[in-house]
């Protein structure tokens, strides 16, 4: 596969995943707010502010808006094209990436993404966002899920799939850490990791934003800061937990290079392996000791590092691959017998 194509497929999927996550985040939080119609504007601000902070786009937000109200935050994250990370911007980028590798995609996959793009540009979508926001976000999420379903059922399991998997799981891991990080900015009285209430509301919202409510309930645990954090970081089988995502990234990287898991042949594999070990063998206590925000921050910067190394190895300098680097052997203690396909 062409290096440029690999890069483009990676970003196409990443942007769709980002739009999907944002749509869920906003939708969930709007729903939660409906339970508190009596909130005054000061407390409303307290509610939305953590969300903006967690996206990492607070600077841009404050350049564009004076007030942190529902309307501003929702507009900023949904259809403000001045924000390159808004849902509409992400779908536009995803579609632009898809267009440049149109020949690599199945007709169905392209049509779904193009259809979603046309929807976000339509008057219907503007109307829907004003009159019935849940329907709007549902449209976006359904299309993103359909996109994922079509790609899973029409993409050959070759390098294309692997690079798409990298994009999806790196973005998912990043978004899960960011949604968890919302707890760092909880308004006063809700910050306690162990306290059951009123934090339950916020922690539930975080679970739902990660689409994890059902899966979490199945574990029959109570919703507390600690249980939610543990689930979203360390669950070995929930598809949006950071550990699961990093495991998928690690698997895809080794399929691409052809080296066995537990070893590494380039920097992205080494970085990813280190993070996976930390998540495989880490304990919630370690996180609490380090501080959740610090822990999440570190994961986010490592994710960026992995992405950067992937770009360096496979896109920027494919010439290097011609002279194969010797594989550094390492005896793995954690070699799953069968690779999981999500």
């Amino acid at each position: 596969m062409l290096s440029r194509v690999a890069n483009t497929l990676y970003w196409m999927v990443r942007y769709v995943e980002r739009a999907d996550n944002l749509a869920r985040l906003i939708d969930v939080n709007e729903q939660v707010l409906l339970d508190f119609e009596s909130l005054d504007s000061e407390r409303l601000r307290g509610f939305w502010k953590p969300i903006i902070l967690s996206t990492g786009d607070e600077e841009r937000f404050h350049e564009l808006y004076d007030d942190v109200g529902s309307y501003q935050v929702i507009h900023f994250l949904t259809n403000d094209t001045r924000n390159p990370n808004s849902i509409v911007s992400c779908i536009g980028f995803a579609r632009e990436n898809a267009r440049t590798v149109r020949d690599q995609l199945s007709d169905d996959l392209w049509e779904e993404l193009n259809g979603l793009y046309l929807f976000t540009k339509s008057e219907e979508s503007t109307y829907l966002l004003e009159s019935n926001p849940p329907r709007y976000y549902e449209r976006v999420r359904r299309a993103a899920m359909t996109f994922l379903g079509i790609s899973a059922s029409t993409t050959a399991r070759d390098g294309r799939w692997d690079f798409m998997s990298l994009g999806r799981h790196l973005e998912r891991a990043d978004k899960t850490t960011r949604f968890l990080d919302i707890s760092t900015y909880f308004p006063k009285g809700a910050e306690g990791l162990e306290r059951a209430s009123p934090g339950v509301l916020h922690w539930s919202a975080i679970l739902s934003s990660c689409g994890a409510m059902g899966a979490f309930r199945a574990t029959r645990q109570e919703i507390t800061g600690r249980t939610v954090m543990t689930f979203l970081l360390f669950s070995p089988d929930f598809p949006r937990s950071v550990r699961y995502c990093i495991d998928q990234v690690d698997a895809a990287l080794h399929r691409i290079s052809g080296t066995s898991r537990g070893t590494y042949s380039n920097e992205s594999e080494r970085e990813c392996g280190m993070m996976l070990a930390k998540l495989n063998f880490g304990k919630p206590e370690d996180v609490l000791e380090e501080g959740l925000h610090f822990f999440l921050d570190e994961i986010q910067s490592k994710l960026n590092k992995i992405a950067g190394e992937i770009f360096e190895t496979y896109v920027l300098m494919p010439e290097r691959i011609v002279t194969k680097l010797p594989v550094v052997p390492f005896l793995s203690t954690n070699q799953p017998a069968q690779e999981q396909e999500q």
Binding site: R4, A6, G159, I256, Y314, P318, I321, V322
Partner: peptide, 15 residues
């Protein structure tokens, strides 16, 4: 990319 008067394409598996 052209190397020694041969044309190559840059792929994830090298040239």
């Amino acid at each position: 990319v052209v190397i020694d008067r041969f044309v190559y394409m840059r792929t994830t598996k090298g040239l």
